[in-house]
Computed example of a mutant assay.
Amino acid sequence: MSTRGPRGPYAKSAARRQLILEAALAAYAEAGSRGVSVRDIAERVGLTDAGVLHHFGGREALLTAVLEARDVVAAQKFGEEAALWHAEMLTENAGTPGLVKLFVDLSAAAAEPGHPAHEFFTERYQVLRRRYANAFAAGRPADQPSAAPGAAADPDWAARVLIAATDGLQQQWLLDPSIDMAGDIARLRDVLLEALERSAAAPREQPTG
């Protein structure tokens, strides 16, 4: 069996797709909260809008491929358990609000089974749940410190986490109805309450000097 990559027109097409995706990621990184149009991407690679979409089959498929490329870049840079152990990844995401908005918008649209991103998001959540479950089972890596000293749980933090989990679980449930949303949120609520109780009972550091 040959180990060579694609040749001829196929190789050229794959290379052009990769170039377009790199241009799209760069465009989103530089755009801030401003949206990115197909024309913005096309101008970076010297193509027309139609020329860009030709390589992906449509705008929604192109945007789905952009998110797939973002996941690949993150995995290469931070490792497969990026979001679990590496806060740096989320810090980096905060610097590209355009990509975050694209993710939110596309994940909502992908609830429709016929949407080009439906399969991507369905598989993404399945893979992440399995991957993070394994990471949690293995425990904290030796080179990953726990939360900063004095970073106590507080009601505002607990509220943000509970709202985030509720919204995120609804999205996952649309893609996988076997998820027990109510049961999961009840368990998380109890975990957060326990964290708040432990934080309240912990001795306070006395100021020095």
Results as ranks from 00 to 15, higher is better:
2 S>T: 14
9 P>V: 12
10 Y>E: 14
12 K>S: 13
15 A>W: 08
18 Q>W: 09
25 L>T: 03
30 E>S: 10
31 A>D: 00
38 V>S: 09
43 E>K: 09
48 T>Q: 07
48 T>G: 02
52 V>F: 11
52 V>A: 03
60 E>R: 05
62 L>Y: 06
70 R>L: 10
71 D>K: 13
76 Q>G: 11
76 Q>W: 08
86 H>A: 15
87 A>F: 09
90 L>W: 12
90 L>N: 08
92 E>N: 09
96 T>M: 11
97 P>Q: 02
101 K>C: 08
104 V>M: 11
107 S>N: 13
111 A>Y: 06
111 A>F: 00
114 G>K: 07
119 E>T: 15
122 T>Q: 08
128 L>S: 08
129 R>T: 08
130 R>D: 14
133 A>I: 05
139 G>I: 03
142 A>G: 12
147 A>C: 05
147 A>S: 09
152 A>C: 07
153 A>K: 04
155 P>M: 06
156 D>R: 12
160 R>F: 15
164 A>D: 10
166 T>A: 15
168 G>I: 02
168 G>V: 03
169 L>R: 06
169 L>H: 00
173 W>K: 09
173 W>A: 07
174 L>G: 12
174 L>V: 12
177 P>L: 06
180 D>G: 00
181 M>L: 10
182 A>R: 07
182 A>M: 04
186 A>C: 05
187 R>P: 05
188 L>K: 04
191 V>G: 11
192 L>P: 01
196 L>W: 07
199 S>H: 05
203 P>F: 02
203 P>H: 04
204 R>Q: 12
